[in-house]
Design a protein around this nucleic acid. Structure first.
Length: 460
RNA sequence: GCCCCCAUCGUCUAGUGGCCUAGGACACCACCCUUUCAAGGUGGCGGCACGGGUUCGAAUCCCGUUGGGGGUGCCA
């Protein structure tokens, strides 16, 4: 009966913000650990940003980070726009009870009058005019004198002097409700008990709390978690920063890594940062959430992702890479190479480039790598000898390596240097997965062909 | 301008008056390992913003300063 009800209330904007993802995760953990409910409410009251497909995008993104609409703790999606009547009904009640009044001043008029009086903002000039509803008239909340104290689970008690809060608009001149009203009315009708959202909403909170009280209801428990910032310490913005969760997904970040990383921003899962969701969910507490903004560090995210990639089995990794592999590629060689590229990947999207030399006829040759590999005077002769040895030996990486080791002693160089020319000849680059394993997968004929071509090229 | 929030290594954090000579992670540097590159191992660099209090004792409590951030719409 008194199971807590949390909510996540994004506005559909066409992409899913990583900051929103973290807020959702926090709410999700809280709802699940308490046997409560996570309500998804789409705040679509601004008709300018409202497309049906965007809602699906939100649901898909939530599902990707483990917040499934099929879970019994999940409720929704509910749409704010469908509660239009309830918003206006609340507005009417607020007006009738004297908590709100109509005002016909336009923004321009307000600005002009404020300037004339040497003040800023709206001075409550229409408060006692007794105006009724009418076209172009906005409904304003009559902010009472006194102070409003917000009890916040993350920040403690935050006190606001009501004198610093002007009579804000509840209903626009065109008759549509404003976010601040709709948000409260929806939370009320959805019986939300805990509002956990980003810190940018903290200044809204005293206003909303006043609305709750004016409507005769007990406000929910508030919690404002710190925002995510960029390297300039500014709130992550879609203009300048990479904030779309979908983009990270497309770039080959694992959902588990993203979830884990997001949870460490503003909160710590304990002794080790790398923790599965199942371990974090039950121990997450708002009281432990930090109060200061957290930098969204791509480098650390990538490090987490690398860790998670390495935790996968070879089969799992091969399957996870599937979306990034060209359709025409034969999967068998790729699967053989997976164990060798696993510890070299930071993202799944890097997988194709790590093995593409297996699939292209003549891999592009990196000139710098080539020059370096063939610079030593022994390089060409050694490569010829390798070809000779590889023409007849058993084709497995152990034998290939042994043959190379035999030659390296004759030229008195280490294995790395001895195989440099062969590596460039076969892969076009000086870096890549282990050479002999790659040769084994590539096959004798193709490997030798490339090595002979390299000899020809080196001679000319 | 006004209101509000915040302040531990470059970054994310542990720390809730003595266990702190402030711990871990990412990044960086060095070394080891080594089949290039990675991965892994070891070590290093590096921090309680500043100034006052309170206390036998402050990273931890209070005040101020400074510095960040958020909000200031008929957006959400």
């Amino acid at each position: 009966m008194n199971a807590p009800r949390y909510r996540f209330a994004p506005s559909p904007t066409g992409f899913f913000h990583v900051g929103g993802a973290r807020t959702a995760l926090f709410n999700w953990a809280l709802a699940r650990q308490s046997g409560g409910t996570f309500v998804l409410r789409i705040e679509d009251t601004d008709e300018a940003r409202n497309r049906p497909e965007w809602t699906q995008g939100i649901i898909d993104s939530l599902a990707w980070i483990g917040i499934s609409a099929d879970d019994p703790h999940f409720e929704g999606p509910l749409f704010q726009s469908e509660f239009f009547d309830a918003h206006l009904d609340a507005a009417r009640r607020l007006h009738e009870s004297g908590h709100a009044y109509y005002c016909e001043m336009t923004p321009d008029e307000i600005q002009a009058r404020a300037a004339a009086e040497g003040t800023t903002g709206y001075g409550g000039w229409s408060r006692d005019l007794g105006l009724g509803p009418g076209a172009g008239r906005v409904l304003r909340f009559r902010v009472p004198a006194g102070t409003t104290v917000v009890h916040d689970l993350v920040r403690g008690e935050v006190e606001f002097d009501n004198a610093t809060i002007e009579d804000f608009v509840l209903v626009r001149g065109n008759g549509t409700p404003v976010f601040i009203l709709a948000n409260v009315v929806d939370d009320m009708s959805m019986r939300i008990t805990h509002v956990v959202r980003a810190e940018e909403h903290l200044p809204n909170t005293p206003k909303q709390q006043m609305i709750w009280e004016a409507l005769g209801e007990q406000p929910p428990i508030w919690a404002h978690v710190p925002v995510l910032v960029n390297e300039q310490r500014k709130k992550l913005s879609k203009r300048r920063d990479k904030v779309a969760l979908e983009q990270y997904r497309e770039e080959g970040y694992l959902a588990d890594a993203m979830v884990n990383y997001l949870m460490t921003l503003g909160w710590s899962p304990g002794d080790t940062e790398i923790q599965p969701w199942s371990a974090m969910e039950p121990v997450f507490r708002l009281e432990d959430v930090n109060k200061s903004p957290a930098f969204f560090d791509l480098k650390k995210l990538a490090a987490f992702n690398g860790d998670y990639i390495r935790m996968l089995s070879a089969d799992e990794l091969a399957a996870a890479c599937e979306p990034w592999l060209p359709a025409e590629w034969d999967r068998a060689p790729f699967r053989q190479m997976v164990p060798y590229i696993q510890e070299r990947l930071k993202t799944l999207a890097e997988a194709p480039a790590a093995v593409d030399f297996l699939y292209v006829h003549d891999p592009a040759v990196d000139q710098e790598s080539w020059d370096k590999a063939f610079a030593p005077d022994y390089a060409l002769a050694l490569l010829r000898d390798v070809i000779g040895a590889y023409e007849t030996c058993t084709w497995d990486h152990g034998t290939l390596k042994a043959a190379m080791e035999d030659l390296m002693t004759r030229y008195d160089v280490k294995l790395g240097k001895a195989s440099a020319a062969t590596r460039v000849a076969v892969t076009g680059r000086s870096v890549g997965p282990p050479l002999f394993e790659a040769l084994e997968v590539l096959g004798r004929d193709e490997s030798l062909r490339r090595m002979r071509d390299a000899v020809t090229r080196a001679e000319s």
